[in-house]
Amino acid sequence: MAVLGVVVETTDRAALQQLARQELPRLYALARRLAGDEAEDLVQEALVRACRAFDGLADHQAGPRWLRVILANVWRDRLRARGRRPSELLVDEEERFSLYDTLVEEDPLPYSDTLHVDFLGAFSEEDVHLVLQRLPDHERAPLVLRYVEGFDATEVAAMLALPVGTVHSQLHRGRQRFERELWRYAEESGLLAATSDHEGRAAGDAGAGGRPDGAPAPAGLGRGSS
């Protein structure tokens, strides 16, 4: 297996280092989304693996993408080594959960004319990240690769070494779980209570005794709007 007499091209080494430095923030972001607290370690292993395979990268323009694929591969291997179940079925109740309907029924933002958009607008980047971390690893991975990173389903299947059909069903379950966890997170973190309070006060301050008039509700709904 040893590659005997390898002469290290210093240009290769420099090229890989430059690529890695340039891609580090993006690579780390992907690792955080996939692996949460394990992110740094995941990036390290991906870099080491990239190093061993760099000779095989013919087109250096494809480098950024190539690094992300390697990182996803490392994560897949880790999940496998831990023997995670491919996927447990959602219980019926979860299968039927509809965030859209729940918002209509619970009406958590009574002052909003654009309830659904404003509900999503209440989530900061950190909130969305925390919601994603609540998903099981094997459902989060396809969701992140498909919708955050923008790989298509076939590419995701190749990266995770799964049949495309499996990726589609994991995506379906992942989306459902994501919606469900958005709602749970909003309830548990007081996200909406804070938002309603704010709106309520605004209405009170206006002194009109009704809904706040003129000013359209900003998408950020009173959180970190400055």
Partner: peptide, 16 residues
């Protein structure tokens, strides 16, 4: 984390 990872990058060896 950036500092640690850049140190890893500095130590990278290509190929083997």
């Amino acid at each position: 984390a950036q500092a640690r990872l850049e140190a890893v990058i500095d130590g990278l060896e290509v190929g083997d």
